[in-house]
Write a protein that binds this DNA or RNA. Structure first.
Lengths: 223, 223
DNA sequence: TTATATGATAAAATCAATTTTACCTATTGA
DNA sequence: TCAATAGGTAAAATTGATTTTATCATATAA
């Protein structure tokens, strides 16, 4: 999602993206030991390349690298989810406000386009087709990125991206569907964007994030 | 400074800290090519270990890793400095407010202690002894960390730490002394902390950061 | 029995060697 | 003269091999 992009063709880069999404989408579980020999087979790269990848992920806090004891997938907790959500809120609210104030026609068009793609996916989800959750979540991410894309700070957007991804992991671990509520909120955010109503957008975004947190916690799969 | 700590004795970890501080303190200059063979000699580790380190630093945005063309020290720009400063402000103001509201006696004692160490250093700097800038800046960092340490979110503190370090690099690149003004502001921040006057502390912090930015830009060594 | 030490094993960290990729130069053809 | 391309070189990326470290089981002493 918000991963740092180098050469997409390179084997190391491919493996990095695969491992990263596997963590984000819960195919590699929190706390799981990441043994090098095993991963080497699973992802088809050598130990050195693997270690480069795991060091990057450790730097992103998606993996824990302790002492000389190798690597684990970062654990989850209620406390951490609340911190992640609060930080996402702080960053996204701020960026949203700036973006609404500065966005031009080009920005508006991108927002509309991003919402359209997301909306199509959300319709499909609504009618029971949960086959491509990854694409759905990528579109979700792209819509939120589009909203804040006129904030004027790539540093802010990258930082937000990293936090957003960790938030996403919690949503995926809770793995219970909340698409209908989210879809409505997305529509409301779009409407606010077109009216440049930052205050209302912030209010909806706050509810959007808090709703996600409480929904995730209610499933009881986190703590 | 805010680097991720693993085993401090390990050769790879030692080299990581050295390279990181060399970037932060301008001994490795912005845009500089980081050739593996050269670094191997300079830091006494093998190419694989070196690549792990550079991948971590690339993930922190202190190093640029593009395509299959190796590694460069991240470049600097006026725009980037402004973004970094704005993000530091957003995070630190928020954390400060929370911390002032929640801090207990233990927290106050830590703040006083951190300021005392910094203050001693600042006196030394004032009287012309600029021999240990690194320790000075580490104490600066520790004081600001102490102020926000009761904010209740380690995620927020770590994110802030990363941004703070990039801000620090700009200060070091400008390499012109501003210790007297900063020292006065630090004293004011301490007084605010003891009175729990978050509003005034935020105001001073804003000036503290903006002052640093304008001072750095005035030297003409950034753009 | 408990604590400490010793040795074996498995895994991680580091190193050295190979393969691949990019970059520069020179040469050829338009 | 310029563009395009092929060849050679230097550096990066990846691999496989070696060294180091941690962990677990067993034995020995308090």
């Amino acid at each position: 999602m918000g991963a740092i992009t180098k050469n997409a063709e390179a084997p190391g880069e491919r493996a990095y993206r695969r491992i990263r999404t596997d963590i984000l989408f819960g195919r590699l579980l929190p706390g799981q030991k990441l043994k090098l020999d095993r991963l080497k087979q699973d992802y088809g790269v050598s130990v050195s390349t693997l270690r480069e990848i795991l060091n990057r992920l450790a730097s992103e806090r998606l993996v824990l690298a302790e002492g000389q004891r190798g690597f684990d997938v970062t654990t989850v907790s209620v406390e951490d989810l609340r911190e992640i959500a609060a930080l996402r809120e702080l960053l996204e609210i701020h960026a949203l406000t700036e973006s609404f104030a500065a966005g031009d026609d080009e920005w508006e068009a991108n927002v509309v386009a991003a919402h359209h793609k997301l909306s199509l996916m959300e319709e499909r989800m609504k009618s029971g087709d949960h086959s491509d959750t990854e694409t759905w979540k990528r579109y979700d991410w792209l819509f939120h990125q589009a909203l804040i894309s006129a904030c004027g700070s790539s540093t802010l957007m990258e930082t937000h991206g990293g936090v957003f991804d960790k938030y996403l992991r919690y949503q995926m671990l809770a793995l219970s569907y909340r698409g209908d509520v989210a879809a409505r909120e997305h529509k409301q955010l779009l409407a606010c964007a077109l009216k440049r109503d930052a205050a209302k957008a912030c209010k909806i975004l706050r509810e959007h994030i808090h709703g996600g947190v409480e929904h995730a916690l209610a499933t009881g799969t986190i703590g």
